[in-house]
Amino acid sequence: MFLGDLVAAPVLQDGRRVGYVADVRLLVPPHTPGQRVGTPRVYGIVVCPRRTASFVGYERTGVREPRLLAAFFRWRARGSFLVLWPDLARVGENGVDLRLDARRWSADLDSRPQL
């Protein structure tokens, strides 16, 4: 499976479309011997109600500068939320289905990613 297939795929819950996959959040664990960076695994998906190219990133990181542009991009991606992997019912070619009781979390990357 390719991560690219998930990006911008429609997200459905109870047969109704609730948005699109704005991004796929990965968890990079501490690396094991024989590698320098841990093998990332899918932590969850960031769902945005609109099909915007919202990866400019303002809506999820602490960056708020330059002020007006950041406000615009945050407004454009308003209503985005994070759904954790266990809450996903199906990941297929034509989209992602959420479980009926899927919990919606804040999409903010609270800690600055130490990239």
């Binding site: 991560l3 796929v24 959040r25 990965l26 990079v28 960031v46 990239l115």
Partner: peptide, 9 residues
């Protein structure tokens, strides 16, 4: 345990 990274971003 580890670090969260958004793939597309």
């Amino acid at each position: 345990v580890g670090q969260l990274v958004d793939a597309r971003l």
